[in-house]
Design a protein around this nucleic acid. Structure first.
Length: 431
RNA sequence: UCCCGCGUAGCUCAGCUGGUAGAGCAGACGGCUGUUAACCGUCGGGUCGCAGGUUCGAGUCCUGCCGCGGGAGCCA
């Protein structure tokens, strides 16, 4: 009885007869010799069938195979430089588990609409697998980073009341007759938890009901949001640059093959080391205006503005201390310039835009209440959040990093939809 | 929501100033002993997104609608 092996371990079985289970990637026949390439999720392996060396049943079974049919193949492993991966199997037994219907995705170019309609099958393609493996590695790296620094992970609610970053963009649902909303952020909850544990983070899906149609937006995306007691805005930015550098380093170390398959220029990623350049908002305005931007002091930066700034540097760049009016209500007023708040956006290179938004939080009860009223937010819903400023208020800061934007940047993909296994886009809820 | 572009075979596309539908891939069949998205030959495959209009005649021109893509706004 042949030993069962995964494709990635075949090098340890040279000379042995092994069984691999997987799906038909491609097949090629030459009359008396044929090649069957099987994919098992850990790699692909070429099986060689020579007509007068396999049974008639196995030869017929080979001929019946279609792309993506599921099979068990048994054969002797040998080193073969002509084979993908360096090893191939001399087929001894072909066990067909299921013949696949005509497979819609071919090894050729397809349109994005077609591919997204077939996302459940598109996941099997090599580039899509590479992107999702990078995502997996980055998610693991996030947990490792915070675990090593003593952060406690706090799982924040997805069903919430009328509370979030600000008025618009909430998905509404029914909660036993009461209006409920899908969470836009876990931040307000991790602020509460920071007073319990000091350093905490949440990691999970967030929802924005904005009808955005750009390469940087999804209606459902994942975010990691650390929150640190006693950190000021400076401490916050230092943590962010260490964090992002660590994520990039992990991808470079452990996803070499995936980044190569995606043809990512990794020299651009190797430069991502601390410290990151920092410019304050007013400098940023001067920079973009000198490059022809129409944006005036007081307005938030547009996508084109962000690209101008990012292109001026060879690694991610912080833009800090934006005008109050352009930012969320919970950000702390800058004592040195009350027109602005203590916050930062981290812009990724190569036009990938904002991957982090962070700030020191307003810890003064009266100023926070005034800001909630100015924004016209439902005061009742924020009662518990205001409580945090009544019972031992404390300086604290935090940030949110978008997973899909980060993965798209590290993988060098133009659109973030490929960084999500099943992306939720405007008008696209299936599959 | 606004601006721009696209919609032709299962897929990717071509189709000129309007004249009656094409290719490659995929599929079926046949050939081939080392392929790498193999190759060669044969065959089947169409409500040209939908509705209306102009015209002797519309895939082609016009209007509306639907779908998709790119961008803006908003943000991560």
């Amino acid at each position: 009885m042949a030993v069962v092996s995964e494709v990635r371990d075949l090098g340890r079985h040279v000379g042995e007869s092994v069984t691999v289970r997987g799906w038909v990637d491609t097949k090629r026949s030459h009359g008396k010799v044929a090649f069957l390439v099987v994919r098992d999720g850990t790699g692909i392996v070429q099986n060689v069938l020579v007509r007068n060396q396999v049974s008639a049943e196995d030869w017929d079974a080979f001929e019946s195979l279609t792309q993506e049919s599921s099979v068990r193949v048994t054969g002797t492993v040998r080193a073969e430089p002509r084979a993908p991966g360096g090893y191939e199997m001399a087929l001894e037994k072909l066990d067909v588990v299921s013949i696949a219907d005509e497979y819609p995705i071919q090894p050729k170019e397809h349109g994005i609409d077609f591919l997204l309609d077939h996302r459940h099958l598109w996941l099997r393609s090599s580039q899509q697998r590479a992107i999702l493996r990078v995502r997996h590695e980055i998610e693991q790296a996030i947990h490792d980073f915070f675990y090593a620094r003593g952060f406690v992970r706090i799982d924040t609610p997805i069903l919430t009341g009328a509370i979030g970053e600000g008025g618009a963009g909430l998905f509404q649902t029914d909660y036993f007759g009461e209006k409920a909303y899908l969470a836009q952020t876990g931040q307000l909850y991790v602020e509460a938890a920071a007073a319990a544990f000091g350093k905490v983070y949440c990691f999970g899906p967030t929802f924005r009901a904005e009808k955005s149609k750009t390469r940087r937006h999804l209606t459902e995306f994942w975010m990691v949001e650390p929150e640190m007691a006693w950190y000021d805005s400076e401490d916050n930015m230092r943590l962010q640059e260490e964090f992002v550098s660590y994520l990039v380093e992990r991808a470079l170390e452990r996803c070499r093959d995936e980044l190569a398959l995606l043809e990512r220029d990794t020299t651009l990623l190797e430069r991502v080391t601390p410290p990151f350049p920092r410019i304050d908002y007013s400098e940023a305005i001067r920079l973009i205006q000198s490059q022809g931007s129409e944006t005036q002091w007081g307005q938030d930066l547009g996508g084109g503005d962000e690209t101008i700034i990012a292109n001026a540097y060879d690694r991610p760049v912080f833009v800090y201390n934006y005008p109050k009016a352009a930012k969320a209500f919970y950000m702390k007023e800058n004592p040195a310039d009350p027109r602005t708040v203590l916050c930062d956006d981290l812009l990724a290179p190569e036009g990938y835009g904002e991957i982090i938004g962070g700030s020191q939080r307003e810890d003064d009860y009266d100023r926070l209440l005034a800001r909630i009223r100015e924004e016209g937010l439902p005061e009742d819903a924020y009662g518990w959040y205001l409580d945090l400023r009544k019972y031992g208020t404390f300086p604290h800061s935090g940030f949110g990093l978008g997973i899909e934007r980060t993965v798209a940047w590290i993988c060098g993909r133009k659109h973030i939809r490929e960084a999500s296994p099943f992306p939720r886009l405007l008008n696209r809820l299936y599959p």
